[in-house]
């Protein structure tokens, strides 16, 4: 009954293959354009964000940075907790954007800090 080893070997191999090939299925979780016309100069910054785990959270994240003047677009990847933000460098900068999404969301009687940039 040596063939039984095929089962755990196949399990292990296929799990490794799954992790190694996730890139093949990589598409954004959320893409948002905040402006109708893109500014002449656009810079981009990438954050890894604790709490950015799904499409709903991505929407919440978009809401939190939407008030920052100069935000151009947002693309999130929930699997890697990544947010790529395009911005107009004459109006804002990465620190201001980070401050915006790390800020609290007010609930009924308490404040919640759903996102934190990983340094």
């Amino acid at each position: 009954m040596k063939k039984v080893i095929i089962i755990p070997a196949a399990v292990l191999l296929l799990i490794l293959v799954a992790f190694a090939t996730t890139g093949a299925y990589r598409v954004p979780t959320l893409e948002v354009e905040f402006v109708e016309e893109r500014p002449a100069v656009v810079k981009s910054v990438e954050y890894t964000v604790d709490g950015l785990t799904c499409r709903g959270k991505s929407r919440g994240f978009a809401g939190m940075i939407s008030g920052v003047e100069g935000i151009v677009s947002l693309t999130t990847y929930a699997r890697s907790n990544t947010a790529i933000v395009e911005y107009d460098p004459t109006l804002t900068d990465p620190v201001e954007i980070e401050t915006a999404f790390e800020g609290p969301i007010a609930h009924e009687d308490e404040e919640d800090f759903p996102f934190k940039a990983k340094k």
């Binding site: 293959v17 090939t21 093949a24 979780t29 893409e31 499409r55 929930a78």
Partner: peptide
Amino acid sequence: TYTCAMNELHVAL
């Protein structure tokens, strides 16, 4: 696109 908490790892698995 992916909805909810689904992502590329789920598809690969």
